[in-house]
Computed example of a mutant assay.
Amino acid sequence: MATTFKPFSTLNFLASLLIILQCTTTLAQAPPPGPSGPTNITKILEKAGQFNTLIRLMKVTQMSDQIDTQLNNSNQGMTVFAPTDNAFASLKAGTLNSLSDQQKVSLLQFHVVPTYLTTSQLQTVSNPLRTQAGDTASNKFPLNVTTSGNQVNVSTGVVDTTVSNSIYTDGSLAVYQVDKVLLPMSLFGPPAPAPAPEPLKKKKSGAGDDVPATNDGSASADASDAIAFGSCFSGLFTGTVAFITALYL
């Protein structure tokens, strides 16, 4: 039985060769998968978009470097509340420029919780929530987180807002979007009331007084005796002068 061979067309050969060459080139150019790099808060915010003002403030105050260092050198984790550009734009004109460098640092620290909190943990945290700004007293840096259904509310005593979006989470860093800048009481709250004036103290008698008072009244008696003696002496002197004058007349 004769075997029939089908001719292999030149066109099919060239097409196959082109596919092989293309696959070989793609494999040669594809870089091997590398390990994930260290956490970088700036890159996370840049990728999310609409956080340019926050990024600029973090760079100026070096807060971004501090956050990255802490995240990459500890297992404690961190939670960041990130205000959008619109949140900063809604502030009163000149608000940020009126702050000193240290106050800007405190403002950003007020947006950072030094522990990793998931959305479910935010619903059960104890208030006031401690931030990197420190003191949680009512007139300092109190941050209160409450929930209503699935909505997470954040209050500072100056502003109230909600967590509108979860931007990033990796088990050690959580970044949540807020639509208002979290203004702390210490920087933006009403001034503390002035202390009440102290009652006036009764003036004590000093050593320079003309007649020092004593309990038994001896000073007053001495003064009276001195006045009486002076009067008697004056009268006696006047009488003597008059008597001598009469003898010579």
Rank of each mutant, 00 (worst) to 15 (best):
S164D: 12
V80P: 03
P33L: 03
L54M: 09
L11G: 11
T161S: 14
V178K: 10
T245S: 09
T240C: 13
D209L: 02
G239Y: 09
K180G: 15
A221L: 15
Q50P: 09
A207R: 09
Y248Q: 13
N144Y: 05
K202V: 03
F141W: 09
T53L: 03
S36L: 15
T119V: 03
D209G: 01
T161I: 05
S106D: 11
T124W: 01
T162S: 15
F243L: 05
C23L: 07
A30H: 13
Y116P: 04
T3K: 14
N165G: 07
K203D: 00
S172E: 05
T136F: 02
S234C: 14
I55M: 07
G134S: 04
E198G: 14
L45G: 08
Q132K: 05
S234M: 14
N12C: 12
A213H: 09
G189P: 03
L236T: 11
A219E: 12
F8E: 00
I167F: 12
A219F: 04
A242E: 14
A213E: 04
D170H: 08
Y176M: 02
A82R: 14
D65M: 08
I44E: 08
R130Q: 03
L129D: 05
Y248D: 07
L122G: 01
T146W: 05
L17Y: 03
V163K: 11
T161A: 14
A192P: 07
L236P: 11
N153G: 08
G37Y: 10
S155I: 02
S74V: 00
K59V: 00
T162Q: 15
A196G: 02
A246S: 05
Q177G: 06
P190F: 10
I244T: 15
T119G: 08
Q103T: 02
S138W: 11
G189Q: 02
N153L: 11
